[in-house]
Design a protein around this nucleic acid. Structure first.
Lengths: 137, 137
DNA sequence: AAAATATTTGCAATGCAATTGCATTTTTAT
DNA sequence: ATAAAAATGCAATTGCATTGCAAATATTTT
């Protein structure tokens, strides 16, 4: 018998090991994007490197996407509707300067940009900073 | 007698030292955004830390702006029309995945984004990746 | 002009996060 | 059961930003 968690991994051709199930479960339990250190703390005393490679595997198989939120730390968040093979998460990410959480805004698409002549676009990253709804004054 | 380079520094309340003039001159000679290591190589054997602090001074005085182009390395570029006191360079930056250069697109503004209810915007960073006009096939 | 003060510079050192090498353990295939 | 492949854990490295502190330089005051 396979659980839903296991299913989610195998759907992305990821073998469901104990560590991977734990990391996936933790990602599901949180709604914001997490850094390696965040996950490491929650998984203590599991090995940092193993978690790192777990996330890398997830990322390469279209289960999570890697976010550069401008803090200099890589953040990981579950993909909503990416192909198992290819990412297409062109949504905006929001960094709250109060609670320091990074959120995906899956419904906010990046608008088209007019580039100068001769420039060819392959990807875009838009990160918005401010106060999130929970941290409003 | 003061040169144009000196003038540009003093306009931003920066004392024109030899190092600062050299760094400013180099920034002017290049049209793309540069990382600390780029500048360090060009200034060799000048001290890396001194250049770092020179750029920090420039940044704090509105002469250059700091760019996060997603490579994980800070890039610096001369401000076009920022106040000496306050930056307002809300333009898009372009990272060419071929030549690895980062360009300011001063005429391409970041469009307004509709945020979810309760989210308050304070700043935005949009970085576009692709091929620049020189690296087109 | 000399002394006192402030600023700039250069070296050493630290800190933090990403990443790789390699040996060990575990899983999968023959 | 044995061989091959994959996953794990530890140690170590790398790269970059950043700070502390002392020496050098420039500025101000007496």
């Amino acid at each position: 018998m396979t659980t839903l968690l296991e299913q989610r991994l195998t759907d992305h051709r990821i073998k469901p090991t104990a560590m991977r199930l734990l990391v996936l479960e933790y990602l599901l339990s949180r709604q914001s994007a997490l850094g390696l250190s965040d996950i490491e703390k929650a998984m203590a005393p599991a090995d940092r490197i193993t978690i790192y490679r777990t996330l890398k595997t997830f990322e390469q198989n279209g289960l999570v996407h890697l976010i550069d939120d401008g803090t200099g730390v890589h953040k990981y968040a579950l993909c909503d509707n990416c192909d198992p093979a290819e990412h297409h998460d062109t949504h905006v990410h929001f960094y709250c300067t109060v609670c320091k959480e990074t959120y995906c805004l899956p419904d906010t698409k990046i608008p088209d940009i007019g580039l100068p002549a001769g420039f060819i676009l392959s990807e875009m990253n838009l990160i918005v900073k401010g106060h999130c709804d929970k941290c409003r004054l």
